[in-house]
Computed example of a mutant assay.
Amino acid sequence: MSVTELLVVVGVDGSEPSLRAVDRASDEAALRGVPLRIVNACLWERYEGAALAHDLGEPVERALPQDLVRAAVRRAGTRHPDLKVTSEVIFEEPEYALVRESRDASALVTGTRGRGGMTEALLGSVSLTVAGHAHCPVIVVRGSHDNRARSGRHGRVVVGVGAKSTLDFAFAEATRRKVPVEAIRAWRCPAHESTDHPLPAGEPARLHEQQAVDVLEAALRDVPADAEVHRRTVEGPAGTVLAGASHHADLLVIGARRHPRHFGLQLGRVAHRVLHHSDCPVAIVPEEG
């Protein structure tokens, strides 16, 4: 089965962040021309949240998982009337269910449990686990303080330059949106090479910056000929640099290296930093270790 035939999957739990995730997933499915699958995975027969219960016009204690899924389906249909939407309630731990669902997906979309913004960022354990173990790219929706997903405001996809799979995903997303890609390579001068004397300190810094430029150019050598690319090298920790770049991005794409024999949390420090502090949705693309 080719990627173009796969689904876009979104996990919903009735919270406001999951409503934004439904909006984003609907947009992603419409852009790809594929069906949307809405999944609620939980261990309870009654729903605890308030956002979709409000949409249903029902008291929280009377809202069932089937009700919130139906409301999410209506929401997606309102946003994209021609979109094919399927749904399912799965009585299972959300992390396990969504990772399994990712096997048949071209992208999986989740929301965050935090309040949003750079200073109040908290990412839920479900999103972290799914982003670290999914079999497809995971888009974690961030960057809005209400329950509406925003369409592109900046006209740009930002990617942290890494493996080919990460770059391919970023350029495919940019092509669908008809926007340019900003490719960023962060670099740092190791502390033991620095000195208080400005002239000797400059040469090591220039060497490390040039190495970053060389890596960036090599990574972008095979990008589509018609793609619009803005290259940028920035001194600083990669997580901080990429989180800062999210201020002017509609989507931030990074890779997550997987270790097949390691069953713990798969995300490194850069991914953690970006997921907790990004000001826009973040796509985590699996990379083999």
Rank of each mutant, 00 (worst) to 15 (best):
F263V: 08
I90L: 12
V8W: 02
G14K: 01
L128K: 01
L52M: 12
P224T: 05
V39L: 13
D250C: 05
R75A: 09
A238V: 10
P17Q: 01
S144F: 06
P204Q: 11
H247D: 13
A212D: 10
R100C: 00
G117W: 03
D146R: 04
R176S: 08
H197F: 15
M118R: 12
G143C: 03
I284H: 02
S102H: 12
V8M: 04
H247K: 12
V229I: 13
E217P: 14
H276N: 09
A131S: 15
G114L: 04
V39S: 06
A186H: 08
S102V: 11
H145M: 10
S127T: 11
G11V: 02
A149W: 08
R100M: 05
T4F: 13
H230C: 05
Y96I: 06
A174T: 11
C189N: 07
A172Y: 06
N147A: 13
L108S: 10
V22R: 01
Q210C: 03
G236C: 07
L68Q: 02
L267S: 10
V229A: 02
L43C: 07
C280W: 01
G155V: 06
L216A: 12
H192A: 12
H247T: 08
A186P: 15
R177S: 08
S15F: 02
V234C: 07
I38E: 07
R258F: 09
G77A: 10
P281Q: 03
T78F: 07
K178T: 05
S246Y: 08
A243N: 04
V60Y: 03
P59K: 01
G14W: 01
V234Y: 05
A131E: 07
S102R: 12
A131N: 04
P281W: 01
A245P: 13
G132A: 04
V69I: 04
V89M: 06
A225R: 15
T175R: 15
R32T: 00
R232V: 09
G202Q: 14
V69K: 02
R156W: 01
H276M: 02
R74H: 12
V99C: 12
A121G: 15
S125I: 07
V229H: 00
A225L: 05
T129W: 09
V141P: 12
L267E: 03
V39F: 05
E203Q: 14
A201R: 11
W44C: 03
E5T: 13
A29Y: 03
V213P: 14
S194D: 13
A245T: 09
E173M: 10
V126E: 02
V73E: 14
G160D: 11
R188K: 14
